[in-house]
Amino acid sequence: MKKILFLISLSVLLTTVSAQEAPTSGKKLPGVSVKTLEGKTISTADLNNGGKPMIISFWALWCKPCINELTTIADVYDDWVKETGVKLIAVSIDDSRSSPKVGPTVNGKGWEYDVLLDVNGEFKRAMNVNMIPHTFLVNGQGEIVWQHTSFSEGSELQLIDMVRKLNAGEAIESH
């Protein structure tokens, strides 16, 4: 066991040195399989927005603050896209009990996000998500540059502010 811990602490030492500089973090999206609402399997490493920033938001139908966050953003999403070119990818971690309801609910609410289904939490685990909502900001090179957990009214303003900073090439606070 000690050897493994040593191996891991060694790699921490070797790798975190360069991880601090935003907006490039070097922290690429992990590649695991998720499904689209059309039933197509894709790799999360291939997620992109043509060089523009991307928001990845983990949510579930049973999570009130998550629905609140996505509903709030839905009202201003058109403006966000026009202004910054950002794209929001809403990753549902609902399991097979509720995942078939995700498509009809998302459409029924009129959300225009790209929605992915992570039915067994594989993407969630690879992204170290503990509690939802958990939101990541990914830069045009596919690197995670910022993350935030929980949602309260007004948090969306901080999020779009980060997107603007990213577009302007400004530094982003590490958390």
């Binding site: 078939p100 309801k101 498509g103 009809p104 459409n107 009129g110």
Partner: peptide, 15 residues
Amino acid sequence: IQASYSMKRFGVIVS
């Protein structure tokens, strides 16, 4: 068995 249909602003599912 689950069947659903959805369009913008409307979704229905039966299971």
